[in-house]
Simulated scan of single mutants.
Amino acid sequence: MDDNAGTSDISSFKVVLLGEGAVGKSSVLLRYIENKFNNKHLSTTQASFATRKLNIDGKDVELNIWDTAGQEKYHSLGPIYYRGSQGAILVYDITDERSFERSPAANPIKNWVRELQEVLKGSAALFVVGNKIDLEGTRTISKETALQYAESVNANYHECSAKENINIDSLFDNIAKVMLEREKDAATNLTRRSSLRRSNSRRTLQVIDDDEAAARPRKKCC
């Protein structure tokens, strides 16, 4: 989608990038924000931040994207950056099985999802993303395996290549669409609850009026 500089009636969302070190999170963000790729490994320390405005089906959207460090020594800081996120992108390297199963304990990436659920209570749109599909010939994690996992945690699945700029824009377009839909649903539910409260309030007032009328002394007939 095209960038849009308009600021009126804009929906602003926080998106966090998660995953092990060297899976290409920073490369995905660099490609999306600046349309660049650095062949040298980009190691993120703690977290970096970038913003991009776009337009989704006529709706202005601002994405505030946090790229978190994947190294184990920074992992304890993760929940600090998760808070307040409406979207989360969990990136792994399709050629590195260890990126799909966190080393050294070889726990599956559901640990990342578990942390997100603990902090965000399932409120964020989650995307599981396999990066480096330009290296398809050395793939070690099948698309079927990753897709099955994504479906098991109610996440969307996406594959991309930061190096070759494959499916990068569509990744962020798709998560923006999901977050917009959630925002719309939340607004609809809020309107329904507000309408229900007003309706209940009117019923309560009517009951009170009826009770007061019934309690008034009746005038005697001549």
Rank of each mutant, 00 (worst) to 15 (best):
N131K: 08
E101W: 05
N131H: 11
R102H: 06
R102W: 00
S99T: 06
A106R: 14
E101Q: 14
V119T: 00
N111K: 14
W112H: 05
A106D: 10
F127W: 11
S103A: 15
V129K: 09
I133L: 12
N107M: 09
R114W: 11
K121H: 10
L116S: 01
L116F: 04
R98Q: 07
F100Q: 07
A124W: 00
L116N: 07
E118S: 06
G130N: 15
A105L: 15
K110T: 08
E115D: 02
S103T: 14
D134Q: 10
K110L: 10
L120G: 05
I109T: 07
A124N: 03
S99Y: 14
G122C: 05
E97C: 07
P108A: 05
E97Y: 02
K110P: 10
L120R: 00
N111R: 14
W112R: 04
A124C: 07
E101F: 10
V128H: 08
N107H: 11
F100Y: 12
R102F: 00
F127A: 04
V129C: 08
G130F: 13
N107L: 15
D96W: 10
V119S: 02
E101P: 06
E118K: 03
R98W: 08
E115R: 01
S103N: 12
T95L: 09
D96R: 13
A106V: 01
A105N: 15
G130V: 11
S103P: 15
P104W: 11
E118M: 03
K121Y: 02
E118C: 05
E97S: 02
V128N: 08
V113T: 06
N111T: 10
V129T: 13
D134A: 14
I94Q: 07
I94R: 13
G130K: 14
E115P: 02
L120C: 01
A106N: 11
I109F: 04
P104Y: 08
S99D: 14
E101N: 15
R98L: 13
T95V: 12
V119Q: 00
P104T: 08
W112P: 06
R98C: 07
E115V: 01
R102K: 04
E115I: 01
F127T: 03
Q117F: 05
N111F: 12
L120K: 00
N111S: 10
S123M: 03
G122I: 00
G130Q: 14
V113F: 01
L126H: 03
L116C: 03
E115K: 04
L116A: 02
V129P: 05
K121R: 03
K132N: 09
E101C: 09
D96L: 06
F127K: 06
T95S: 12
D134V: 09
G122Y: 00
K110M: 09
N111Y: 11
V113C: 02
R98E: 10
D134R: 08
V113E: 00
E118H: 07
I109K: 11
K132L: 12
D134P: 13
E101Y: 12
A124P: 02
A124V: 04
I109Y: 10
Q117Y: 06
A124M: 00
S99C: 06
L126F: 10
